[in-house]
Design a binder for these strands. Structure first.
Length: 469
RNA sequence: GGCGACGUAGCCAAGUGGCAAGGCAGGGGUCUGCAAAACCCCCAUCACCGGUUCGAAUCCGGUCGUCGCCUCCA
């Protein structure tokens, strides 16, 4: 029985999808800059969720948006003197490269806000008709804004567990805004000079932030979806507002059955974020410790607990990934090595069933790796156990690939190893060590086994696929 | 002010009533020409105080400390 902590109820709940295909909507990025490892945490977590559901036999439909129009995009494009489309294309490509190297499975659909405007307009019109939204003059535009009327539904605040009074107390009103209520939020913004805009029943303008996810999840996944995921900071206001709009518009509730939110990456004691400027990019992380290293680092902590970043923890993850890789890829004969593979699989499943407890699932993998190594040392064949390790690692998105093939210099390295073997046979230790040290300087490690010498590149430098950027 | 999270070994991090997972780092061994890898062994009474209980890291009360959301944010 799979259980998830549902933000809506704050309870651990049994997962029971409504139909044959589990519908998942994950809030995507706003492509105006490189993504950092905090974003990686979120997308890796939801990738593991999806991989686990698939492994357990569910069919999944995963939709993830790109917010390709917003203030930050407009500002940045203006500063770089390029169009918003050019800016967005650049950072969407960068994001896709990052996800590929992190081994994140592609979503089934990647809708873009700017391509879904008609759907949003229909929704806003519907909300106005039903009395949930209203037009108001904009202080900065000749065209009006449209706001959602927060007070129209009594359950507003149910996701973030706030009362309307408390929200009112904290709400901010930009000068000149003609909101009925300070907590009301924009569905549509009247166009300002020099901004991209679309025609609408209210004149020229652009959609507000929250409406896109409601419109796109409705379009691609229907009125009720199984799982909606995102970072903790999206709970309020973004997801709260999505619920309000969607349920008001369709009349179907709940809009989402299971709300899942991941916690933060911390830099020391602070949250890693763009605004604090204390982030490292996914690309930097990949270059340092590789895709497996970065993923393992993320999964060593439970997704609902903050994850602490440091160079040391990142390196620790890289070394851990190398340990798993060694166990999984070491040459071996057929056999399970006397290892209880069924029990291992069960332990792994129990951990993952329990609200995706990846730290415990990883502990199972490390235990299995140790058993494999031990059995090999004792001369038993372990290929079946290795297959299990690779299978379970794949559920976590860890490739554990032996990276030799990727290196063009492989034949030359093999040649050097052959020469060195002859030197060793002749007990020419100094020369043999010279070759080993020389290769080490080039980030190639040699390991002398009883029968033969194997080699491996440093993970970070080799496994990262070259990118076009 | 409102809502919430957290404080477990040198570092990271599971565990939420019954002798404290796992990883990294460190120390000692085995193996090896030496190394690397691997294997074996060692390395914590869970922020503090009080309470409930046969029994608490785990429940209750309090103290101290840290962080997040309430405004764009994964």
């Amino acid at each position: 029985m799979i259980r998830f902590t549902n933000t809506l109820t704050r309870q651990l709940e049994e997962f029971r999808p409504q139909g044959d295909v589990v519908s998942i909507y994950v809030c995507g990025i706003t492509p105006y800059d490189d993504s950092h490892i905090g974003h990686a945490m979120s997308y890796v977590i939801f990738d593991v969720l999806k991989r686990y559901l698939l492994w357990r036999g569910y069919a999944v439909k995963h939709v993830q948006n790109f917010t390709d129009i917003d203030d930050r995009i407009i500002e940045r494009a203006n500063r770089l003197k390029i169009t918003t489309d050019e800016l967005v294309a650049r950072y969407m490509a960068a994001y896709n490269d990052d996800m590929r190297d992190l081994n994140v499975l592609p979503a089934d659909e990647y809708p873009r806000a700017t391509r879904e405007v008609p759907g949003m307009i229909r929704m806003i019109e519907g909300l106005i008709e039903k009395g949930y939204a209203y037009e108001a003059a904009s202080p900065q535009s000749e065209w009006p804004d449209v706001y959602y009327r927060v007070g129209a539904k009594a359950d507003y605040g149910k996701l973030s567990h706030r009362t309307q009074d408390s929200l009112l107390a904290g709400a901010r009103v930009e000068s000149g805004e003609q909101k009925e209520n300070a907590a009301d939020f924009a569905l549509w913004k009247g166009a300002k000079a020099g901004e991209p805009s679309w025609d609408s029943p209210w004149g020229k303008g652009r959609p507000g932030w929250h409406i896109e996810c409601s419109a796109m999840s409705l379009h691609y996944l229907g009125e009720r979806i199984d799982i909606h995921g995102g970072g903790e900071d999206l709970i309020f206001p973004h997801h709260e507002n999505e619920i309000a709009q969607s349920e008001a518009y369709t009349g179907a509730a709940p809009f989402v059955r299971y709300w899942l939110h991941n916690a933060w990456v911390k830099m020391g004691d602070e949250k890693m974020s763009k605004s604090l400027g204390n982030f490292i990019t996914i690309r930097d992380g990949l270059n340092k410790v590789g895709g497996d290293g970065l993923r393992l680092w993320i999964l060593t902590s439970h997704y609902r607990k903050p994850l602490t970043f440091s160079e040391e923890t990142l390196e620790a993850a890289q070394h851990g990934a190398a340990r798993l890789r060694t166990a999984a890829r070491a040459p071996s004969d057929d056999g399970d090595g006397g290892i209880d593979t069924a029990a291992t699989r069960e332990r792994f499943t129990a951990a993952m069933d329990d609200d995706l407890n990846t730290p415990q699932a990883l502990a199972v993998l490390f235990d299995l790796a140790k058993e494999i190594n031990r059995a090999r040392d004792e001369g038993r064949g372990v290929r079946d156990a290795q297959a299990l390790l690779l299978d379970l690692a794949d559920v976590l998105g860890l490739r554990l690939e032996a990276a030799q093939e990727a290196i063009e210099a492989a034949p030359f390295i093999e040649l050097l190893i052959q020469v060195r073997s002859d030197l060793r046979a002749a007990k020419q230790w100094a020369l043999a060590d010279q070759i080993r040290d020389g290769l080490a300087a080039l980030r190639i490690t040699l390991e002398d086994g009883p029968q033969s010498t194997t080699w491996k590149p440093d993970e970070a430098g080799s496994s990262a696929t070259p990118t076009s950027r």
